[in-house]
């Protein structure tokens, strides 16, 4: 355990702490996502490195995992915080009020997985076209393919 995080761990007893290949991981209940992130930021993790998501389609009760990688420049240390989201409209609290830099990655997660971020100032698609249907990185979204026509093929038009 990183010393700076001990008071945070005491404040949030529901959070499960793990070790994943030498990295600290905190599994946070969805309802405490924002408060926990705020406490961790207060404890010295001033840089939000990354936000992404994983789709555990049909293999877990709560379908989505939202993953944030935090970095402390002063210590230096890394911490990964993970929460879950499920149901018809998966929603997680937005971290934009804490780190304005969460804007783009949260829009990317919304675009790719259809997870909404509560309190995000501009919850729109970022990489896919605005009129795109579906969320491409979900596991039930097909990879798709473009038919290739060969010159010698008799079926070629």
């Amino acid at each position: 355990m990183i010393a700076a995080l001990e008071p945070v761990a005491e404040r949030f007893p529901e959070v499960v702490w793990e070790d994943s290949h030498g990295q600290r991981v905190a599994r946070v209940p969805n309802a405490q996502w924002y408060d926990f992130a705020a406490a961790v930021k207060e404890a010295g993790f001033e840089l939000l490195s990354d936000i992404t998501a994983v789709d555990w389609y049909r293999s877990r009760a709560e379908r989505f995992e939202v993953v944030a990688n935090l970095t402390s420049i002063s210590i230096p240390a890394r911490l990964r915080i993970i929460t879950t989201a499920g149901g018809e409209n998966p929603t997680v609290a937005s971290l934009v009020p804490l780190w304005p830099g969460a804007n783009f990655p949260e829009r990317e997660v919304y675009d790719m997985f259809g997870i909404s971020f509560d309190g995000h100032p501009d919850m729109t698609r970022i990489l896919m076209p605005d009129d795109w249907e579906g969320h491409p990185l979900r596991k039930d979204f097909g990879v798709g393919s473009v038919p290739v026509q060969f010159k010698s093929s008799p079926k070629a038009v």
């Binding site: 490195s49 993953v67 990964r80």
Partner: peptide, 22 residues
Amino acid sequence: AGETYVAVESPRGELGCYLVSD
């Protein structure tokens, strides 16, 4: 199975790879 995040210093900044295996 597992998950990890590895970052390297690319010419543009922190380039990370978050990998999940089942």
